[in-house]
Simulated assay, not measured.
Amino acid sequence: MPDINDLIDVLNGEMLLYKDLLDISTKKTDVIIHGKIQELDNMTKIEGNIICRLSKLEEEREKILSGYDDTGEITISELCKMLPEDDAKKLKKIQKEFESILKALNDRNGLNKSLLQQSIEFVNYSLSIISNNLVEDNGIYGDNGSVKHVSSIIDRKA
């Protein structure tokens, strides 16, 4: 049987990375509200790096868990039943903290998704108004100052 402390170390490492993701998601909300596209792009790149690191830790976790169960699909709750009480308490504490972080991350990502959707709808609405006004007013001039007739100058889907 593998050393439970190895699993605890991996889980704590994953938890720190999920906390980083939650911190970034929280900052993203402000960035989305203020329309700071470049900062949003940078944050997304940072998230990608964190996710790569999480993937490596996840592989480690699965490898450790395969020592307890041939399928490697044993849950923390099931593992706690197999362990001494002290080790089970440590794992249960980590499990509760994980649940809290993941719920907060899910909630924040839902908010950010909603804000982004509203931003896209606003951009599409604005483009529609601009495009319709230009077409109705024939408001685009040609080379010699004459008015060009335009059917559409903007792709209406952002």
Rank of each mutant, 00 (worst) to 15 (best):
I74F: 01
L127E: 01
N5F: 12
P2Q: 05
M82K: 15
V147R: 15
F122L: 12
E121T: 10
K92R: 14
S128D: 11
E62N: 15
G72N: 03
A88H: 10
V10T: 10
L115M: 05
D20Q: 11
S25E: 10
D41E: 14
I64D: 07
K90P: 06
P2E: 04
D137N: 15
S126F: 13
M15C: 09
I76S: 03
I64N: 06
G72V: 03
A158Y: 14
E73I: 05
Q95F: 08
K113L: 13
L40E: 02
E14S: 06
M82S: 12
V123H: 00
L83A: 07
S100H: 13
L115F: 01
V31E: 06
R156A: 03
L116Y: 04
G67P: 04
S114R: 12
I140K: 02
L102H: 08
C52H: 14
P2N: 04
L54I: 10
E85A: 13
E47I: 07
I154T: 00
L57K: 07
S114A: 13
D86W: 08
S55G: 13
D41R: 10
V31Q: 05
S152P: 00
I130R: 01
E62R: 14
I37M: 05
S126T: 15
N49S: 14
T26S: 08
E136G: 06
D86N: 13
H34F: 13
G142M: 02
G72T: 02
A104I: 09
E97F: 06
L116Q: 07
I33K: 15
I154C: 00
L105E: 01
R108T: 15
E14P: 04
S100E: 14
L57D: 07
